[in-house]
Amino acid sequence: MKTSERLEQALKKLYTAFHNNELNPECCKQCAVGNILDNTDSWKYLSDVHGSLKLNYIGKVHETLERRFNGYTPLELLKIENIFLKACGYTLPLHHKNKKPNNPTDKDILFNGLNEVVRFLCHLDNISNAMDYTKLFEFENEEPKYDLDFFN
C-alpha cells in the first residue's frame, strides 16, 4: 500500500507510543495529536477547548496561512484529536465533569481510539484503511483472493 510521508510518520509515531505505553488521551503531549507532533503541546493553542472542532483566533490564523504541522492543517489536527477522544469513550469537550473511561490508558480503550484515528488519517490521504484486514479473508473458487504480501 502506497502511503504519504505524513501518514507513514504519523502511523510510526502512534504505533511506537501505543507499544511503549506513551499514549494518554488526557495529556496534550501524549495524546494522538501530541504524539503525531513529536510530543509537543503547541497544538493545544489552536482551540480554546480540548476536544473541540472549533479553531480559535490563533488556529484560524494558522489555517488561513495554510500552515501545516507535520503535514496536517490545524483543523485536521483538531479532528484527529476529537475522533481519538470520542473513540476512547470521552464525552466532549474534555472536562472533569463529562463522561470519561475509568482507565483511560487501558490498551483496549487506546486501541479503539487508534483504530478510528488510523481510519481517518487514511481517509485524509485518500487511501484504504490500513486497519482493515477484511481483504485477507476474501476468496474466489475456494482460494484466497489476495496473498499476504498484498499489504506491502
Rank of each mutant, 00 (worst) to 15 (best):
Asn141Thr: 09
Gly113Pro: 07
His123Ser: 08
Asn141Pro: 01
Lys79Phe: 01
Leu124Phe: 14
Cys31Asp: 14
Leu37Glu: 04
Glu142Pro: 03
Asp106Met: 10
Gln30Pro: 02
Asn70His: 14
Glu76Arg: 09
Leu11Ile: 13
His96Val: 09
Arg119Phe: 06
Cys27Met: 03
Val118Arg: 01
Asn39Leu: 10
Leu53Asp: 01
Thr3Ser: 09
Leu53Gly: 02
Glu5Lys: 06
Cys31Leu: 04
Arg68Gly: 04
Leu7Lys: 06
His123Ala: 11
Pro104Leu: 15
Gly59Ser: 13
Leu85Tyr: 07
Glu116Ser: 14
Asn56Tyr: 05
Lys97Ile: 09
Lys100Tyr: 03
Leu46Cys: 06
Gln30Ser: 05
Leu65Pro: 14
His19Ile: 12
Ile80Gln: 02
His50Lys: 10
Ser4Met: 00
Leu124Ile: 12
His95Leu: 09
Thr40Asp: 05
Phe111Glu: 08
Lys99Phe: 03
Leu75His: 13
Gln30Arg: 13
Tyr90Leu: 00
Asp108Ser: 13
His95Arg: 15
Phe137Asp: 04
Thr40Val: 05
Met1Phe: 15
Lys13Pro: 00
Thr105Trp: 06
Tyr15Met: 00
Cys122His: 05
Leu14Lys: 07
Thr134His: 02
Lys86Ser: 15
Lys12Asp: 11
Thr105Val: 14
Gln9Trp: 03
Ala32Leu: 06
Leu94Asp: 01
Lys86His: 06
Phe111Pro: 00
Glu138Asn: 04
Lys135Ser: 00
Val117Asn: 04
Thr105Ser: 10
Asn112Asp: 15
Asn21Glu: 11
Ile36Glu: 08
Arg119His: 08
Phe139Tyr: 09
Cys88Asp: 01
Lys44Trp: 03
Phe18Val: 03
Ala17Trp: 02
Leu11Ser: 07
Glu81Ile: 01
Ala17Asp: 03
Asn129Glu: 03
Phe18Cys: 02
Cys28Trp: 01
Asn98Gly: 01
Met1Gln: 07
Ala87Pro: 07
Gly71His: 07
Ile58Tyr: 08
